[in-house]
Design a protein around this nucleic acid. Structure first.
Lengths: 234, 234
DNA sequence: GGTTGTGAACAAATTCACAGCG
DNA sequence: CGCTGTGAATTTGTTCACAACC
């Protein structure tokens, strides 16, 4: 099912497909029928050659002289990304971050139903947060058994993250997405991705510093387009 | 000040330095004096050669046969990342996500003081969320003028994101971090990074699907280590 | 004419492997 | 002897440029 066009899709492409998909869905809502690689590139903030190369890994779904049929491309892309099935999610941590994620456009929506929140605080158990019921962390095995949970999201304070990950792995959750500002380890065979919100700030700060620095001490032509504007958006 | 060792630090390295830094700070708290590339690699979830290469861009701060002096490395790395100065942050959107970010370990902490929240809802203006005062979005020019805001964080619903970005750019904020599930554009000269929380889920789902697929239809040696465990943590 | 799809050229990033140093 | 630092080799990703096609 995966690898339609014979090639294994490169990791860098996998990371961009969801971005294209979002633009395509927006255009589909606008009743647009086709889109060129040029236009899609503009919306996604990359260049057109990259879009064409990326889409070519899915197969030859464009029409020369015309562009890509949006609806068809959405279908193919969703299938490739595994979005034709639901991936039930449980979120650990019923605080602000957990609530924000449970509400986030694109979680509940696009194939990632948040079936439960879990928390260590028994006060919160039984409540609903963002419309999602809160269970105790110890109930996670039952939740996994009952809902076939595909992804566990960690939205707890840093101190609790490793313990929560252990619970999740033990309960048989195959993929974990960690938002806590902590480094955690998981058993072999469990997928782990981390999103460190502070890391993003640090990267921005670095670029800002570099930019200030380069404006003060210009290189060869007194101006380096690489350091400004869109180039940074990568 | 930047580019200590004569080389321009590669983008991929810049994105990993904050991750190393977090581990180093944790070890410093534990009163450890030195660390090997091997150990640091383990903590950060990468391989040792990469750690050495990355650190070499900062300069030759290790000692052969011994490892790296943690405290010194923290200092050099912080300087390189621009973390010896504060980068005041304003967060747009005083909802759950805004509150979560204002609370997030590593924002307020490590050099990114959240000086204000802004919101379009006049009901919220004047309140405090996570200890941070809420202002109206129209007051953003004053806030920037007063606090020398370096980074604007967008934590609003998707619909409001572009308008907020426009306000921020107009007020002269040089760097924007967008958490809203929307594609936005900014004027040339403004840095933009986006964190799409749903994209991370989609990438996990894709890997999960690929893994299931490969277990059902094994390739050459009936088992492809690339598709399992740590390899995915990248 | 307009736009895709893709080899080929190029650039960036990763990994290897080992000399060099403490 | 252990571990860093780094050239060289390899792999991965990007961009170019143009033939193929609608």
């Amino acid at each position: 099912m995966v690898e339609r066009a014979g090639r294994r899709i490169p990791e860098a492409t996998v990371a961009r497909l969801p971005v294209y998909l979002r633009s395509l869905l927006a255009m589909a809502d606008d009743k647009q029928a086709t889109v060129s690689s040029e236009r899609l590139a503009e919306l996604a903030g990359v260049n057109a050659a990259k879009v064409r190369k990326d889409l070519s890994y899915l197969g030859s779904y464009g029409t020369r002289g015309v562009g890509y049929d949006i609806e068809y491309l959405v279908f193919q892309m969703s299938r490739e990304l595994g979005l034709t099935q639901d991936w039930p999610v449980v979120i650990a941590g019923a605080g602000n971050l957990g609530a924000a994620l449970a509400n986030y456009g694109g979680f509940g929506d696009r194939g990632f139903p948040v079936v439960a929140l879990v928390d260590a605080d028994k006060q919160k158990v039984g409540q609903k947060v963002a419309g999602v019921p809160v269970f105790h962390i110890d109930d996670i095995d039952d939740l996994v058994a009952e809902h076939d949970i595909a992804i566990g999201v960690i939205a707890t304070p840093a101190e609790a993250a490793q313990s929560v990950a252990d619970h999740m792995a033990a309960a048989g959750i195959p993929s974990i997405l960690n938002f806590a500002p902590a480094l955690i380890t998981v058993p072999e065979g469990v997928s782990l991705r981390k999103v460190d919100l502070a890391v993003e700030l640090q990267i921005l700060a670095f670029h800002e510093q570099r930019r200030n620095d380069e404006l003060l001490h210009p290189k060869t032509p007194s101006f380096d387009p690489e350091s400004l504007g869109e180039a940074i958006n990568a």
